[in-house]
């Protein structure tokens, strides 16, 4: 089983390295911009005051968002680019590792081994989760040394919380991706399904923020639970977020495992 986990970790090594480099570059870009943004934080606050409150709420921004590096990164980096990279990376890996292998007819190499489908599925999860863990470490923990380069002070404990929170989010997207991958036999359909669900989830969160009549929608959105600004404000993990991410991951993995064990694989 260990060989299978390693095989999954090593999947698409080059594209994984590119994702890591992109994430470090984006962190570098945002941190390098922070001193000039901080210089103009008063003008930015005035600009924010002119914007509709509902819109600011919808995108999780407030007028104090640019007064500290943690808040600035939470709003600008961790709320937009970083989750986008994680969604792309998790979904592409989840889609490739089962549906993609069925589509390419390469899954037979693993299925012809005396290893149960349960172990094959778990090794696919563990391998890809390990790769995501490495990505989260590289992309989030690189914030501290990059801040150091620019002489910006940052609370390392908050970076650590961002890492745990980000890893939970990445695990959830990976688990949902694996669930669809276990059901479908074409990776394109997995990308489409997971992408569609996340898009609907994102819209639901925006609508819930804009309209009090639809505020209940937020509870069905992964982006409501992925609130990095509130995370840094409170300085601790939100228990409802932890429960949501853990529950969705567990349910998705369990259903995915059940389906992968039950299904016919015609290769």
């Amino acid at each position: 089983m260990f060989a299978l986990v390693v095989k999954e970790i090593e999947r698409n090594k080059i594209s994984f390295a590119i994702y890591c480099l992109i994430s470090i570059s984006i962190v570098f870009l945002y941190v390098s911009l922070f001193p000039s943004i901080q210089d103009q934080s008063e003008q930015l606050s005035e600009l924010m005051n002119t914007m509709p409150k509902a819109m600011m709420d919808a995108f999780g921004i407030d007028k104090d968002s640019f007064d500290s590096i943690e808040k600035y990164l939470a709003v600008e980096l961790m709320s937009i680019f970083w989750p986008l990279l994680v969604i792309l990376l998790s979904t592409s890996r989840a889609g490739a590792c089962i549906s993609g292998d069925i589509e390419n007819r390469t899954l037979g190499l693993e299925l012809s081994l005396p290893i149960s489908r349960i172990k094959i599925f778990i090794s696919k999860f563990l391998g890809n989760w390990s790769a995501l863990f490495v990505f989260c470490c590289i992309s989030i923990f690189s914030i501290a040394p990059i801040c150091l380069i620019f002489g910006i002070e940052i609370e390392v404990s908050k970076v650590y919380i961002l890492f745990v929170h980000g890893l939970l989010f990445a695990t959830t997207v990976l688990s949902v991706g694996l669930l669809f991958s276990a059901f479908l036999s074409e990776k394109g359909k997995v990308f489409f399904s997971v992408g569609g669900i996340l898009l609907v989830s994102y819209i639901a969160n925006i609508v819930a923020n804009l309209s009090s009549g639809f505020s209940w929608l937020k509870h069905f959105s992964i982006f409501y639970y992925y609130d990095t600004l509130e995370l840094l404000d409170s300085g601790k993990l939100n228990s409802s977020s932890v429960i949501f991410f853990s529950a969705v991951s567990l349910i998705s993995i369990s259903f995915g495992l059940w389906k992968f064990r039950q299904r016919d694989i015609g290769i």
Binding site: N104, R105, T106, G108, L109, S112, I267
Partner: peptide, 11 residues
């Protein structure tokens, strides 16, 4: 069991 299929693809 050893298995060979003309349909099966290698990595």
């Amino acid at each position: 069991v050893g298995y060979v299929s003309s349909d099966l693809e290698l990595n």
